[in-house]
Design a protein around this nucleic acid. Structure first.
Lengths: 214, 214
DNA sequence: CAGCTTCACGTACACCGTACCTAAAACCTT
DNA sequence: AAGGTTTTAGGTACGGTGTACGTGAAGCTG
């Protein structure tokens, strides 16, 4: 009965993501996205539940890119690594969306599938019940925490800021009070984020191996 | 020479924190905080660098509550546990500020001191260089990630939402596709967040113990 | 007592999300 | 074929936001 919908959900996601990737989160508004689509702001309300729904759309788009092949395998450790890394890579590809991801508890398809797969891998590692839940929390916590660290860290250049804005700021600290922080910042400035993430993940996996599942 | 300042920084922090704790982050605006202080909105600009500065003020106030006694001790593992727990408790005491904490890279005194202490503990655990940096990332990542999980999780009641809104939502999922998620949600609903955090932290510490510092 | 410096704070503007409304488009009746 | 019905498109307008700018007063210094 209705007039045919002008836009698909995918189309909205693509436009929104392109806009945010190009001009930053601050450039996203109902009006700006509508303009990018060549329509009026109020039209978007036929596709999305207000501003909140728009942001969910974006998060969903990013998480959907976290595809992970070869899971489940016969090696639960490899699976945990693969799942965590896939999520992290997807998030990292769209740094401007990170604030939205961090401040939301998402329930999109992709996140649920990844969560289920992660639980499955951990279960194959011998965890169950509360111990399984703890394992999930540790792994997802690590991924999210690392993403947060990358928000304005020396790893990624914030919009308009130098790559090492943070590093510079730490370097300016009183060396007698924060010697280790200054040292760590110098180390971070010259390190590869992928290697850092992988090394941290190794610590997590080692912990899962060593800690008794209660 | 000047007219004496009407407000102290501490006073602003207390008012802002009280306002946010009582009415949520959405209730915080230049005007609302000014009104709570009995003044006009523009006055705040004499104390704070715009909205951004106001939010930093809040984060600083929360982080300052993360006091940690008895560190450093002669047990680096205990120190890591104590520091992580102190930060988490402070954050958890003001859940409405969590979005601000997560979306910001903070440089207030308290955070720096905690970071330095954490690095010191990890160094006593035999880490240095890149391995030390990784240890820092893992621990702070875990704390931040856990805080994020608590945003709207079954652990804390979101403003106006039932304590188990998330749990309910997971329970409504197709059981044949997400059996483990549903199970985990049920476990989470009945678990104590403090115990969960402690157990996860134990996994992290075990990982730090087991993983070679490169 | 000037005079300068600093703070207090009202006004005004651009921009935001969105409640509400109108018109047109496509299907379902009769 | 014509009318009714239902859904989408999209404009208008309102209350709220952050803040640039300007004015006025208050206190120290000469």
């Amino acid at each position: 009965m209705p007039a045919p919908r002008r836009f698909s959900r995918r189309r909205l996601q693509e436009s929104a993501l392109a806009l945010v990737d190009a001009e930053g989160l601050g450039a996203l508004s109902m009006r700006s996205l509508a303009a990018a689509l060549g329509t009026g702001a109020m039209t978007l309300y036929n596709y999305v539940e207000g501003r909140e729904g728009l942001e969910e759309l974006l998060v969903e788009a990013v998480m959907a890119e976290a595809v992970c092949e070869g899971v489940p395998s016969d090696d639960w450790r490899a699976d945990v690594r693969a799942l965590a890394t896939a999520t992290w890579r997807a998030v990292r590809a769209h740094p401007d969306v990170i604030p939205l991801i961090l401040t939301r508890r998402t329930f999109d398809e992709a996140t649920l599938v990844q969560g289920e797969a992660l639980l499955d891998a951990l279960a194959r590692g011998g965890r169950s019940g509360a111990g399984l839940l703890v394992g999930l929390r540790v792994v997802t916590g690590y991924v999210m925490g690392f993403a947060q660290a990358e928000l304005a860290g020396p790893l990624s250049a914030g919009r308009g800021e130098s790559v090492s804005a943070i590093t510079d700021r730490v370097r300016a600290l009183p060396p007698e009070r924060f010697p280790r922080l200054i040292d760590a910042a110098a180390t971070a400035a010259g390190s590869d984020p992928r290697a850092e993430f992988a090394a941290g993940l190794e610590v997590v996996v080692a912990g899962l191996d060593a800690a008794p599942p209660a």
